[in-house]
Design a binder for these strands. Structure first.
Lengths: 200, 200
DNA sequence: CTTGCCGGTGGCACTGGGTGTCACCTACGG
DNA sequence: CCGTAGGTGACACCCAGTGCCACCGGCAAG
């Protein structure tokens, strides 16, 4: 952090550091495995101290999640803006597809990130905490639209099973290099919403 | 560990120690919270050393899971023994209900365990690793019965979403003191299998 | 009875994630 | 020129988890 910050406002420098940490973490974790890399190594690669790493990422696992909070916020906004006459399940379906509509340039990094999250046990475990936020947002939406409590069966079930569908779509997208993420999401949601027609 | 083992075979003593660790862990975690309790405290309460704790539980989180491996094995057996003419989804449904058919005497401890797992963030995260085993078993069953690969969309999706349904049922059972665990499971699976009819 | 093996245990030291504290430095307004 | 505030690094600390070794009990062979 020397010449880089010269002509930079503080917020920009912060964002730039954040991105450098994330890239260093993704690369090191991909190359050597999540457990095999220490935080000191990530911090060194990002040109900061160990202590500063924890000021940007509250957890080692957090380093791979990027701006996931913004992701959740965008999903929440889409759900809130959904047409009132649209079926609830369809609105969740559409919001999941839209929030995961990445630009082509972002796909390689997304692949790297999701491969780590779904492959490394520690990151898979941690993902449950991040996805819990998503579930709360979806459950609140379903509850609002159906007039029941957010912790009732149907809102919770819709939230967890639609997220399960999205996760499955990501797994499929990662394993099969040909299918589009959007196509995988559509397949998974169609199966789920119809009660698994292909099993009858 | 002195007089207790007098008339005991080694395996019995081991099992008795295991149960003591589990009870101590559940009680301490419930009373003070998972993070606030150190392993030394659990070990002391169970009358063993810290090092021995890790010979029984590979992780602090593992202490609350009891004989979950046996659970998974039983589920696998039920799925393997399912009638060939039964619809696949129904066989998964039935196996989940049957494997969670606890004796009344076991319910308090199950409640304590599940409340911790669903309430404590660290345990919720860890649960993902345990449930991954369940998912593999279910996906393998669905794959076998439908003649596709275990990592194809439908087997994975059935596995993750049925587990989501089971988890939701547990949450409902915990929150609502009146409903039976079996009834909650039935409600959740019925919604899921029919594609959320209550939303139409 | 003694010797030697063997499984379970405890003690100890070490690595690594995460936190609290403090000193420093730099940019800013007075 | 001074004072303050926010970001940073260094250090000390706690705790989860691991490797290693020494010990102690039982048990079979001699």
């Amino acid at each position: 952090m020397e010449a880089v910050t010269e002509t930079m406002v503080a917020a920009d420098a912060r964002e730039e550091t954040r991105a450098r940490i994330e890239q260093a973490a993704l690369d090191l974790f991909t190359a050597q495995g999540f457990e095999a890399v220490t935080i000191d190594e990530v911090a060194d690669a990002a040109g900061i101290s160990r202590r500063t790493f924890f000021r940007y990422c509250s957890t080692k696992a957090d380093a791979v999640w990027g701006q996931f909070d913004g992701h959740v916020v965008r999903l929440e906004g889409m759900l809130a803006a959904a047409a009132a006459d649209q079926p609830v399940l369809a609105s969740v379906y559409a919001a999941y597809v839209e929030v995961n509509d990445y630009a082509a340039a972002d796909l390689p990094m997304l692949r790297q990130r999701m491969r780590l999250i779904l492959t490394e046990p520690a990151l898979l475990a941690h993902s449950q905490l991040r996805y819990a936020d998503v579930d709360r947002v979806v459950a609140a939406h379903v509850a609002r639209r159906t007039g029941v409590a957010p912790d009732a069966l149907v809102p919770r079930l819709v939230a967890t099973s639609t997220r399960a569908a999205a996760t499955t779509a990501f797994e499929l997208w990662l394993a099969d290099g040909r299918i589009t993420l959007g196509a995988a999401l559509h397949q998974a949601f169609d199966e789920l919403a119809a009660g698994f027609p292909s099993l009858r």
